[in-house]
Structures are given as C-alpha cells and as structure tokens.
Design a protein around this nucleic acid. Structure first.
Lengths: 205, 205
DNA sequence: CGACTACTATGACGGCGGTCATAGTCGACG
DNA sequence: CGTCGACTATGACCGCCGTCATAGTAGTCG
C-alpha cells in the first residue's frame, strides 16, 4: 500500500499496477503513472526504454509475484491450514478492500488480459506467467495440505477462476456478495480433497 | 454471428459488443464500430446521441440479453436437464469458439466492467443489470431442476464467477484447460444440489 | 578540475479518437 | 411541386497520449 520508499523505478511499476487495476491499461497514462508514483516524468523513458508495453508487462509481473507471495502469508496466518481457509483468506483480502475503500479496483492482471491479450502478445505472456505463478503457489499450498498434485492443480485453477469472476461481479454490482457466495459454496468441495476421500464427500452428517 | 440483416442500429450495437470483447472499451473506436457494422459513420450520432457511453451501455445490455437467452436454448438442447449439464453447455460455447476461432475475445460485459466500472457509473449499472439478467436466467433454470431458490441463486453466482474467471485464464494462457477444469470440478457440486440432499453429498459411492 | 554516467526536466511532434457542424440525399405526404 | 423528417456524408476541431529530442543537474572517479 505504501508508495514511499523503494526506488522510483519500483514505485512506477507499482503505480502502473494501481492505475491499471482501476480503469484498464488505456486509462493508465504514462504521465499519470509518473505523477501517481511521485516520480519525474523524464525517468519513464530512462527506466523503461521499451515504452508503455514494458511498463505494463512489469506491472503485471509484479502483480503475479505479489499474489503468489500473499499465499504464503495467508498460510502463515491460518491456525490450521485448510483449502477452504486459504481460499477464505484470499477472498477476504478483496472483501476487506471493497468494504473499506470502495469498489474502485479489480485485478490488474485481469484488466491487462482483457485489454491487451489479443494485440500485444508480450503482455498476454506476462499475464499468463503471472497467473501461472499465482496458480503454482496455491497448488503447492494445497499439496502441502495433503491434496494430490493433480487435484491440487485443478482446485487451484478453480479457486483462481472463481475469485477473478467474483471480483468482476462484485465490482459491477458494487456488492461483496458474489465473493462471499463463492467462498461459502466452494468450501466443502475444497476441503473434501484434503482427506483423501472420494472427490465428492468429506464429512458425513 | 451474422452481421447482416436487422437495422443498422442493431448492427452497430452488435459490432460494438464484438469490438469491446476483443480489446476493451477504448479499443472499440466509434469509427471502427461503424466500419465493422458496415454502417455509415454519420449514423452513429443519429442513433446514439448519447455518444459512446450510450453505445457501450447498449452493447453491454445486448450481451446480457444474449447470454440470458442462450440459457434457455442450452436447456432445450439437453436431453435431461441437470445443473452440470447446463454449466457444461455454457462453458462449451467458449471452448468451441476458442478452438475454432482462437482466443481473440472475452466477455464484453467483463471488459466493460474492468474498463469503466469506476469512472462511468451508467456503464457500471448496465454491466450490473446484464449480469443480473444472466444470473436470473441461470437461477431460474436451476430452480426448475429442483434446486431450492436460495441455493439456485448461490450456485448461479458460482457458475457465472467460475466461467468468467476461467475465460480470463484461458485467454491469458491461450489454452482451454481452465474452462474444462472448472466444468469437471464443479459438476458434482452442482448436481448435488438437485437431489435435495445435504449440500455436501449426493451419490454415495 | 574534467569527464563521464546516471538521472531529471521540459517542450515538441504526430497520431488518434470522440464530438460537433454543416450539408446532402431521399422518400413521404399534402 | 414544396416541405418536412429521417438518415447519410464529411470535414474540422480539440484534447489526449505515447514518444522523441534536447538540455540540464549531480555525483563520482581519475
């Protein structure tokens, strides 16, 4: 959240991600990024000779690393690690933000994908890598909980998909209900995978 | 898919949705929309005096109506209606497109949400209405299958979220696997709701 | 001190995109 | 025929945006 400290270069990447989050890539002008980062405009062409494309790609990469890093911190915060607990924390990050700061922003990787996936292949690849990193972190966490690697990967995909989609719905409706709904509905399915039981049932009534 | 027939006004709305699907709202220029629709540029300001905002909002509304309409057609195509069967058809529409035509486009409502949700409230409302219409159609279909209204609504939210998120991942990775994964993983959970059993288990092994 | 590199500062340029203004076509109706 | 309304056609305007060019500062090393 803090923009201060760390070099101006990193600040600009961070600010780019913040602005992309809100209005997509085209709404994140280079001048805006510099101003938001409190950095001189002239530094943009110095640090990012590849132009906006490079800046956007680095912002997407930063978001991927950030999301993956959060997974570890979520795990550490859980008293007893469970798939539903992890997913709940991942979702809670968004409900907290939306409740305290409003529904201004979405996922920067999602925005970059929607805006650039077709035209700018390097950005699409950056988004793919970011999702892959995030997915890998979640899948590894699930595997640590005793889920088989194949199902861990599949469930991680399901978690990411549901979260991204719920973020979208929540922003459109300006209501966190989609987020809470997917958390609640997915919880039993997620936890069922950790027992090593049938994929369907976990705890009988 | 057909651009021909129907008045030029409707064609332009349709074309706008098509272009928004690909590169977001900012990539859908007014001149591009007119050209893509084979309509005269001068007609834009005649049919859409509200400017681009109106055009985008109508495109989003069109997409919502289209998605809701598809639900009914999917139901009709199913030999025996089940929640997982419906979801499979909804997903299949996307896997079919991506396999035959490439990963060029996503959901226009999602793109409009990501691009305009914060700045243009009328567009955000249009997106919310579109999602609501789509959600209502899915929930009604589930209720017809014997799912209680509350769970039908919750599962519809889950289906929409997972589908939208999987579309995003699929476009980034240029691979339909996220789509097939969510279909497979969600199927037992969805069908479990139709039996009226416990929310967790349906068919014991 | 001089030179060199890293970084900053700012103005200009070219293109694009939404919108407006103005005029033109065409059919209907009286 | 005249007029009116619906629609089409085009060019111009203005602002924004990414990029480039050029120059300036500052710290460092020889």
């Amino acid at each position: 959240m803090t923009v201060s400290e760390r070099g101006p270069r990193e600040r600009m990447v961070f600010s780019a991600a913040q602005l992309i989050r809100r209005g997509g890539v085209s709404a994140a002008g280079m001048r805006d990024v510099a101003e938001h980062a409190g950095a001189p405009r002239g530094s943009l062409q110095h640090y990012f000779p590849g132009g906006k494309e490079q800046l956007v790609n680095e912002a997407v990469g930063w978001a991927g690393r950030y999301a993956a890093g959060r997974v570890a911190r979520f795990l550490a915060a859980l008293p007893v690690p469970t798939p539903s607990g992890l997913f709940g924390e991942m979702v809670r990050q968004w409900t907290d933000e939306y409740e305290t700061s409003g529904f201004a922003g979405g996922c920067p990787v999602a925005a970059a994908t929607a805006d650039c996936a077709e035209r700018v292949d390097s950005t699409r690849q950056a988004a793919s890598a970011a999702f892959a990193q995030w997915h890998g972190a979640v899948a590894a966490a699930l595997a640590d909980m005793g889920v088989t690697p194949e199902r861990a990967s599949a469930l991680a995909t399901l978690m990411l998909s549901s979260l991204e989609g719920a973020i979208l719905l929540a922003r459109a409706e300006q209501d966190i209900r989609p987020l809470t709904t997917v958390t609640r509905e997915l919880a039993p399915l997620l936890d069922a995978a950790v027992t090593g039981n049938s994929p369907r049932c976990s705890t009988p009534p």
